[in-house]
């Protein structure tokens, strides 16, 4: 059992949970994830660790209410507990070999790039960060990103904040104005990651993506999270979750990620009725 220390609303249907998990907090690094079961009947759901406090023994998760379990999680109050938290799983993000890094986050994917922004800032090598969402109210942690970045660019589909358009619009601006970019690290919806990869490919800019595949155990056992990278099958949980975006077979990955969507929808409806 892991106690929820704090819960805040950060955007519509998105909550920030500070969870007591001392051993995870002690060992985790940016880019790693945990698997959570809300209650004893719950499914195993992976969430990226978006912040951690080793001293207080807590990790922070940003959770978007999209399915049965995340909806149930939304009903919990500070002081309640999650039944199971296991991690940190996956490999840490390693951007140490790159001087000029652009972090790109879309929607809930911003949760994944935040610890990286913070880490790079602390190392004295802050990144340029691009965050995007459909509209202004869906963005979160804007001030925190501004504080932890060399420069923050915001893109909204409707132009309610920052540039009107997608994160690719903002990234194109950086490229056009001649910024030196050694690496782009992008996390967000699959289609967004693919579009960023297509944008950077002709410029030969190394682009790393984080795959949020379907998985059960998170330790390599089920093989549900397999992705094709450069023609080879890799397991997101033990080989990833980060891969060279230019080598990912995105059409396969997008097809696979939608496999249980109908079930999720049915489950969610059932959850809302309860």
């Amino acid at each position: 059992m892991n106690t929820l220390m704090e819960i805040d609303d950060v955007a519509p249907r998105v909550k920030r949970y500070v969870v007591a998990a001392p051993e995870v907090a002690k060992h985790c690094l940016p880019g790693q994830f945990v698997i959570v079961r809300v209650d004893d009947e719950g499914e195993r759901v992976p969430f990226t660790i978006c912040d951690y406090d080793r001293q207080n023994g807590t990790i922070t998760l940003l959770v978007q209410d999209v399915g049965y379990s995340t909806h149930k999680m939304g009903a919990l109050k500070a002081g309640d507990s999650l039944h199971d938290v296991v991690g940190p799983l996956g490999n840490a993000t390693d951007l140490s070999g790159y001087e000029n890094v652009v972090l790109v986050g879309g929607g809930i994917g911003c949760a994944v790039i935040y610890p990286q922004a913070k880490l790079r800032h602390a190392q004295g090598k802050p990144c340029t960060t691009i965050i995007g969402a459909r509209t202004r109210e869906l963005l979160f942690a804007v001030d925190e990103f501004r504080r932890e970045s060399k420069e923050l660019l915001v893109a909204t589909d409707d132009g309610s904040l920052g540039v009107k358009g997608f994160v690719t619009t903002a990234l194109q601006q950086l490229i056009d104005r001649g910024d030196k970019i050694d690496c782009v690290f992008v996390v967000g919806p699959m289609i967004m990651m693919r579009n960023v990869c297509e944008l950077t490919r002709p410029y030969g800019i190394r682009t790393i993506v984080s795959m949020n595949s379907i998985m059960v155990d998170g330790t390599g056992m089920c093989g549900g999270c397999r992705v094709t990278v450069g023609g080879e099958t890799k397991y997101a949980c033990v080989d990833g979750p980060e891969f060279d975006g230019h080598l990912i077979d995105f059409s396969e990955a997008m097809n696979r990620s939608g496999f249980y969507r109908e079930h999720e929808q049915a489950c969610r409806l059932r959850g809302e009725k309860q």
């Binding site: 155990d217 089920c222 549900g224 992705v227 099958t233 097809n255 696979r256 496999f259």
Partner: peptide, 13 residues
């Protein structure tokens, strides 16, 4: 890697 193809481990788990 088509949908509907999986390991016995995943199915049984």
């Amino acid at each position: 890697n088509l949908n509907g193809v999986g390991s016995a481990n995943e199915f049984l788990t």
